[in-house]
Amino acid sequence: MNFEEAVIKVKDIPNGKLSQDELLSLYALFKQQSVGDIPAESSRPGVFALKDRYKWDAWKKLDGMSKEQAAEEYVILVEQLLAKYL
């Protein structure tokens, strides 16, 4: 499975099955593959935007990871989640 196929296949997982950590990992790997590192001018969301802050933090942890590596890890994670939940 390649990255584009994984993006489509992850939608097969029923809503409510994925944990917060799994969702954050998927989000961060997707953003790292599609955008790359968080732009330097981007600032961490404030305390009252917790969801955005968690997403930003998850993505920030991947700073320096290549887009190719992010795509590979995304595919591996999707394959694991499909095996776990389907």
Rank of each mutant, 00 (worst) to 15 (best):
D57K: 05
I38Q: 03
E72Q: 04
Y54W: 15
G46E: 04
D12L: 03
P14S: 07
K9R: 11
R53E: 02
S42V: 10
L82H: 08
S43L: 12
K31A: 13
V10R: 02
V75G: 00
E41C: 04
L18T: 09
E41H: 15
F30C: 11
Y74C: 00
L86N: 05
L77Q: 01
V75T: 12
L18N: 01
Q20N: 11
K55N: 12
A49V: 14
L26K: 03
K60G: 07
M1Q: 05
V75E: 02
Y85G: 00
E72H: 10
L23H: 08
Q69S: 12
K11W: 14
L29N: 09
A6D: 01
P39R: 13
D63I: 10
V78H: 04
D21W: 12
K9D: 02
V47W: 08
Y54E: 14
S34T: 15
K11G: 06
V75M: 10
M65L: 13
A58D: 15
V78M: 08
I13G: 00
K60R: 13
S66L: 06
L23W: 07
I8A: 07
R44A: 05
F48A: 13
G16M: 05
L50V: 11
Q69W: 02
I38F: 07
E5L: 12
D52A: 14
L24E: 04
Q69T: 14
I13N: 00
Q33V: 06
Q32D: 02
G46L: 07
K67D: 07
Y27P: 06
E79W: 07
K55F: 09
K31M: 14
S34P: 11
K11P: 05
Q69G: 05
K51C: 06
Q33T: 05
L77G: 03
L26D: 03
E5I: 04
D12R: 01
G16P: 02
S19A: 01
S66W: 09
E22R: 02
L18F: 00
M1D: 09
L81Q: 00
S43I: 07
L26V: 08
G36I: 13
K51N: 02
A70R: 12
K17E: 01
E72F: 09
K60I: 13
K67G: 12
E73P: 01
M65E: 09
E79D: 09
